[in-house]
């Protein structure tokens, strides 16, 4: 018995002190750590892909008259980084901060507000201007070098497109 106790003592002494000095010294995180979400409003397209995949459903797409707001309430965030994974432009990312305690719940809200593009036909806002611009850019990439006007239906809302297409099939005017 004494021998085993002696061995245990040796084990403890050999290990020494392992407690980290945190919080006196900063806590380190590994590369690739999934911490606080940040939203870059300059990049966000307002596509809503992040809101669709977020497991706790804590990203909201709020459509108002002429604007769309993407709001992330990360008080409920699970730090899964699915939003980062699906975002087409890298506007939502998770950084390595983990000390997120706050006394004000609103500190945990991020938002980006974007202007909406209106349907040329009926005037209803149907997507964000940035989204439309990106589609237009992607449709006529720079390497084509010739500036061509985007097809007219780009700026028509899906509802009107359906109606116009139906009337075209019936022999009405054609949309380009």
């Amino acid at each position: 018995m004494w021998l085993s106790k002696f061995k245990e003592l040796k084990l403890c002494l050999k290990a020494g002190r392992v407690t980290l000095p945190y919080p006196l010294a900063p806590g380190e995180t590994m590369k690739g750590f999934r911490g606080r979400p940040v939203l870059n409003g300059d990049l966000c397209l307002g596509c809503g892909a992040c809101a669709a995949v977020c497991p706790p459903r804590t990203i909201f797409v709020i459509d108002e008259q002429d604007t769309r707001t993407i709001q992330v309430d990360y008080s409920r965030c699970t730090y899964c980084a699915r939003c980062e994974e699906v975002c087409p432009v890298g506007s939502i990312t998770l950084n390595n901060e983990f000390e997120l305690a706050t006394t004000n719940k609103n500190d945990m809200k991020l938002s980006a507000t974007l202007s909406m593009a209106k349907c040329k036909n009926c005037g209803t806002p149907f997507t964000t201007q940035r989204m439309l611009a990106k589609l237009t850019d992607d449709y006529y990439p720079e390497w084509m070098q010739v500036k061509v006007d985007p097809p007219e239906w780009f700026s028509i809302c899906p509802d009107c497109r359906k109606k116009l297409e139906a009337s075209r099939l019936k022999g009405g005017s054609k949309i380009v």
């Binding site: 392992v18 995180t29 590994m30 590369k31 690739g32 750590f33 999934r34 699970t78 730090y79 899964c80 980084a81 699915r82």
Partner: peptide, 19 residues
């Protein structure tokens, strides 16, 4: 046990709830 947790953090981005 602790180094295993660090290892998991390095592989997955978190010491638990690996996602």
């Amino acid at each position: 046990r602790e180094p295993v947790m660090w290892l998991c953090e390095q592989i997955t981005g978190n010491r638990k709830t690996y996602g």
